[in-house]
């Protein structure tokens, strides 16, 4: 394996309580440039909470967040906004802005955050939409797009900000099975192009093929971590492997 020591994103001992319950217990994570970290684990394990703590959509109770060697002062509003422009996020249910066309969805933050003028922002937006294969859908509204197309617009919207890292929270879970492929293909291209990503997913084949590291999470704790080969090797006896097998059985059942 290539050893890359340049840590782009460093998450140190993040904890979060919600409603008197410990949702995250001291989670740590170091992401080097170009890595794809995959978070897996049962529903309710805390994957979404962890991802949203990384860009402080949910403020962690304690812990440190570092980007490019700089610690984020997460209660400084200006610094937080600047941090978030560098950390893209893809949501499970897309969260496209319903009142804006695909291209305006991509352009709005270029204008309001980066201060680009309307013309340049739209031009950049169309380029990004072209990158995810949606050049011809630029003028459509979210309600006129399929789920797969919506998620690709969301990816274009994140990419337009030139992020250092992208966080993806189960980007294909809300999609009909036949639409999963087109979204995974875009993410695969990003990974091959060297984009740094942290992704929660149940797509185990995808994780096995592309993850630089898999993190298995349960009840707010990252209980296993390692390369796909190490965690998923036949007879590895890991929780990750047991989970993988269970997902596959469920897949086989629903297929038959």
């Amino acid at each position: 394996m290539m050893q890359n020591t340049e840590n782009v994103l460093r998450i140190h001992e993040i904890s979060k309580n919600l409603g008197g319950k410990a949702i995250l217990k001291s989670c740590s994570l170091d992401v080097a440039r170009g890595e794809l970290k995959v978070l897996i684990g049962p529903s309710g394990a805390g994957k979404s909470t962890l991802l949203q703590c990384i860009n402080c959509l949910i403020q962690p109770d304690s812990g440190e967040i570092w980007l490019n060697g700089q610690q984020l002062r997460r209660h400084d509003k200006k610094e937080l906004c600047a941090f978030r422009t560098q950390v893209g996020m893809i949501f499970q249910d897309f969260n496209l802005f319903d009142h804006l066309t695909a291209e305006a969805n991509v352009a709005v933050a270029l204008r309001k955050v980066k201060g680009m003028n309307r013309h340049d922002a739209l031009q950049r937006a169309r380029e990004e939409l072209g990158r995810v294969g949606l050049a011809r859908r630029a003028a459509l509204y979210p309600a006129q797009l399929s789920g797969g197309q919506k998620q690709r617009v969301a990816i274009a919207r994140a990419l337009a900000m030139d992020p250092t890292v992208i966080l993806l929270d189960e980007p294909t879970s809300a999609l009909d099975p036949e639409l999963v492929g087109e979204v995974l293909a875009v993410i695969r291209d990003l990974a091959r192009g060297g984009m740094t990503m942290v992704m929660a997913t149940h797509q185990m084949d995808f994780a096995r093929a592309l993850a630089t590291e898999i993190l298995f999470m349960e009840q707010g704790v990252i209980i296993e971590r390692g390369t796909p080969d190490a965690l998923l090797a036949a007879g590895a006896g890991t929780r990750t492997q047991a989970f993988f097998t269970r997902l596959q059985d469920m897949g086989d059942e629903s297929a038959s």
């Binding site: 949203q52 860009n55 959509l57 509003k77 906004c81 600047a82 941090f83 978030r84 422009t85 560098q86 950390v87 893209g88 996020m89 949501f91 249910d93 897309f94 969260n95 496209l96 802005f97 319903d98 009142h99 709005v108 933050a109 309001k112 955050v113 969301a154 919207r157 994140a158 900000m161």
Partner: peptide, 27 residues
């Protein structure tokens, strides 16, 4: 409005003021 609208705007680095003006109020 769905919570995700404000979340997505914040995730892009928009200030709350910009998010309310450009995303929340138009809808």
């Amino acid at each position: 409005l769905p919570q995700g609208q404000l979340k997505a705007a914040r995730a892009l680095g928009m200030s709350d003021g910009a998010a309310i003006r450009s995303i929340i109020l138009p809808q």
